[in-house]
């Protein structure tokens, strides 16, 4: 099975070592790479939040910009226009996102739209959301919103300089990953994967499709809004085209798919590899060739889908397992002769 049990994973030393290295990063990282690390961790958060719907439940949502945008734009607008504390704003944005997510799921279920229509309807909602943001002065309109300078006042949702945002983004990324692992290893995760693989069969064995889909979309929406609000506070300038535009979501979807959907590790690894890669390219060649990094994402997704349709991480995992099994089989020859079946490598 590809799903490691949640507790074994927590007991294994690997995640703790990775986490320790990550926590110490501000000590040895230069500010340029630090900003890349922060951005990458925010993207990990987005990718993990999207994975709950796109990866685990298999619903291709292209409308997560609604949630990201609600998190960043609504929180900032409430603070700037009505003076509502941003912590409260984040809670409001998360609740609204969860509700919107649940409503979209309900529409999808109520009208039995099927997978492709889910992509279409989320795309249409995302476009509506962008137009609404661009046309509403309260939300900053086309010129966006500018948050006041960060003074490091934690009670005002301010986290100081680079180090503060690094730990913020790191904890959000870890939190989002934990939410993914918890869902995958809980009954809800099994229900969702069952729905993804065969909806009719899932319903036949008594899974409440509507409830599962609504819950997954609500969790994903709230998580996206949370990360979106933090990303917005980090960026200071709330650009409507960045936060409510469709490109951020599609970038996340493509990167997640390159990594391989189903487990959270595919999107995680792909985001950790590709976003820094894209940012370094943008840092060095952005002035000359402004679209090069997105061009490379596009080309990579095409190559990955054609060459290894399950994504990088599952393919690599399979390769590794097959290799290891071959090694074991060679060592355990006497046992094989005693009549045990040789382990069959997973072929697909």
């Amino acid at each position: 099975m590809l799903n490691p049990s949640f507790w074994t994973l927590l007991r294994s030393p690997v995640p703790w070592i990775v986490l320790a290295v990550a926590v110490s990063a501000p000590l040895w990282m230069s500010p340029f790479y630090m900003s890349i690390a922060i951005l990458t961790l925010f993207y990990v958060g987005f990718a993990m939040a999207w994975n709950i719907v796109g990866g685990i439940s298999g619903l291709l949502s292209l409308g997560h910009s609604i949630f990201v945008g609600t998190g960043a734009i609504l929180t900032s607008a409430l603070f700037l226009n009505l003076g509502i504390n941003m912590w409260l704003g984040v809670v409001i944005a998360c609740v609204i996102s969860a509700l919107v997510g649940a409503v979209i799921s309900w529409l999808d279920y109520r009208f039995r739209l099927g997978h492709l229509s889910f992509a279409l309807i989320t795309l249409a909602f995302a476009e509506v959301f962008l137009l609404v943001v661009l046309g509403t002065d309260f939300l900053g309109g086309a010129s966006g919103l500018i948050l006041p300078n960060d003074t490091g006042n934690f009670l005002q949702f301010e986290f100081g300089g680079g180090r503060g945002y690094f730990y913020l983004s790191l904890s959000l990324a870890v939190f989002a990953l934990l939410v993914n692992l918890l869902i995958i290893n809980s009954p809800l995760g099994y229900f969702l994967r069952c729905i993804r693989d065969n909806e009719d069969a899932a319903q036949a064995i008594g899974i409440d499709l509507l409830r599962c889909k609504m819950v997954s979309m609500a969790i994903s929406g709230a998580l996206s809004a949370l990360v979106g609000a933090a990303y917005g506070r980090y960026m200071v300038f709330i650009d409507p085209y960045l936060f409510a535009g469709l490109n951020l979501t599609i970038e996340v979807v493509l990167v997640a798919t390159i990594g391989g959907l189903g487990t959270p590790f595919g999107p995680l690894v792909a985001t950790l590899l590709l976003i820094p890669f894209g940012e370094v390219i943008r840092g060095h060649l952005g002035g000359v060739l402004p679209g090069l990094h997105t061009f490379i994402y596009g080309a990579l997704i095409v190559i990955v889908i054609l060459a290894m349709p399950r994504g990088l991480v599952p393919t690599a995992q399979d390769w590794w397992q097959r290799r290891r099994r071959r090694g074991e089989a060679a060592q355990e020859k006497p046992e094989l002769q005693r009549g045990l079946k040789p382990p069959t490598p997973m072929e697909d």
Binding site: T257, T294, F295, L306
Partner: peptide
């Protein structure tokens, strides 16, 4: 669909 989205990204960035 995702393949065509990748192509869309390539054309747009190109």
């Amino acid at each position: 669909v995702q393949l065509t989205l990748g192509v869309a990204f390539m054309v747009q960035s190109g």
